[in-house]
Nucleic acid binder design. Structure first.
Length: 434
RNA sequence: GCCGUCGUAGCUCAGUCUGGUAGAGCCCCCGGCUGUUAACCGGGUGGUCUCCGGUUCGAAUCCGGACGACGGCGCCA
């Protein structure tokens, strides 16, 4: 088959090549044959289109190949782009030639697959329209986060993935053997960020975090991508504004650049465009009052759980910000509220649709002795954190920061039932393959 | 960590209560059909009933155990 003018399916669907003779290549999505005609629906990374192959319009071997090729066979098709109401999508390619690059074996995924089976064949399911739409949005969201922080004067710096200690207590760390000694996979850049922030002042990074928590929920992964920022000479209010800013910026970019994908997943670009600062903000105490009014009682000092988060975000179209949590249950590095010693200057950004906490952040404790005391209260040995504590010995200044779960953000933007679809190959307690 | 559900053909499931030769639809293969839209019509191939043990003349089915997965809660981003 002689090479023609190669085009993408997406371009054809935009009406760019009507009447032209072009060539496209991709994978067979469906085939139907009716007597002397074969309808071969082809997908590439930009869309799907029907190629109509008439027995009398192509070489005999091409028609035979079209009839024989199974779903997901790789093909090259040459033909004339035609606008036709009978074709799904409104455009089709009237083929003059077809070559099968690879005859696929019987493709295991058919109609009505179970969730469990799709996870077993995830390496094949990633070819689906739904998955590729999410991947494109993920691409855009990641770019937007980089764009936001760089635009705000933050340096991208990289912490290690292999660490000696954790930041949230040692029980949720994956352990690994490091030349005969114990090491761990990072669960947060927290300790390193607080060392680096005294050098670079405004820093951020996006990278993987690992949590060895056997969480069986629709919003937990054991390996997830963490967008984290840390800022010197800044308090809680300033970093809350950055949290609102970065979430909003990601929503704007996705709405502008991926409107078709957004619609395909059940959101609208308008919904995302409306996600602009400021978000509704309330303190933990105010949240308890709101919950009580809704008939949900929560004892003071308990963290907000799924039930409470859902009640608080019910009917919201933007995430909400909850601030000033009780000090009990909070990590040792979070700063006390000078006005209320029982509270810490910590905040969460909570998304609706059951996604829950998208961002968690705080102002950091600057006083050496207070941190050492906090570590002991959590059952940690301050000696193991000695290098970290140097950040409170040599020029300790006010600083604050937050971590954002990229998959949580994508889950919320794409309105996904389960966080595992926000990443191509999810890692959960039950699965690390494929 | 706790609670619940499930495991039968490549896929989706019925059959299990009440033990007696392993079933359907889809996929695939063969045949038909010149505009199909998850095409349709006719025929055919396809099984370690998750595994181990027990009861029984006989177990997919009853009993005991193991393993695996999914869903919910907790923990978190």
């Amino acid at each position: 088959m002689r090479r023609g003018f190669m085009v993408s399916i997406g371009d054809i669907l935009k009406g760019r090549h009507v009447g032209e003779t072009v060539e496209l290549r991709g994978w067979i999505y469906r085939t139907r044959t009716v007597g002397g005609k074969a309808f071969v629906v082809v997908r590439d990374s930009t869309g799907i289109i029907q190629a109509t192959i008439s027995k009398d319009a192509v070489p005999p071997e091409a028609f035979a190949a079209a009839e024989k090729a199974l779903i997901e066979s790789a093909v090259e098709v040459k033909g004339t782009v035609t606008k036709d109401k009978r074709a799904p999508g409104g455009y089709e390619l009237r083929a003059t030639d077809l070559r099968v690059v690879h005859f696929a074996e019987k493709f295991p995924i058919q109609e009505d697959p179970s969730e469990e089976f799709l996870l077993d064949v995830r390496h094949l399911w990633v070819r689906s329209q739904r998955m590729t739409a999410i991947f494109r949005i993920r691409h855009t969201a990641f770019a937007a986060v980089h764009e936001y922080f760089r635009g705000q004067g933050f340096w991208e710096v990289h912490p290690p993935m292999i660490t000696s200690a954790g930041s949230e207590g040692g029980t949720t760390l994956f352990e690994l053997e490091y030349f005969g000694r114990k090491a761990h996979l990072t669960q947060s850049w927290q300790l390193y960020a607080e060392a680096l922030v005294l050098a670079m002042e405004r820093i951020y990074y996006i990278g993987p975090s690992f949590r060895a928590e056997k969480s069986r929920t629709t919003r937990h992964l054991t390996e997830y991508w963490h967008a984290e920022m840390e800022q010197a000479w800044a308090g809680m209010d300033e970093v809350i504004k950055h949290a609102e800013g970065v979430i909003s910026h990601a929503c704007q970019r996705v709405a502008e650049e991926r409107p078709e994908d957004v619609v395909a997943l059940g959101r609208t670009p308008e919904f995302l465009k409306a996600v602009k600062p400021p978000f509704e903000r309330l303190t933990y105490d105010e949240a308890l009052k709101q919950l009580k009014a809704k008939g949900v009682d929560l004892e003071w000092g308990k963290d907000l759980r799924t039930l409470e988060e859902r009640a608080l975000t019910e009917g919201t179209t933007k995430p909400i910000v909850v601030t000033h949590y009780p000090r009990v249950t909070q990590a040792f590095y979070k700063a006390r509220d000078p006005k209320h010693p029982d509270l810490v200057l910590a905040f969460d950004v909570i998304g609706g649709d059951g996604v829950g906490e998208i961002v968690g952040g705080s102002e950091r404790e600057t006083d050496l002795e207070t941190i050492q005391k906090g570590l002991k209260e959590q059952g940690e040995d301050p000696k193991a954190y000695d290098w970290y504590l140097d950040s409170r010995r040599y020029g300790s200044v006010q600083h604050a920061g937050f971590g954002m779960g990229m998959e949580r953000l994508i889950q919320w933007i794409c309105k996904l039932d389960h966080i595992r679809d926000a990443v191509p190959f999810p890692r959960t307690p039950a699965r690390f393959a494929p």
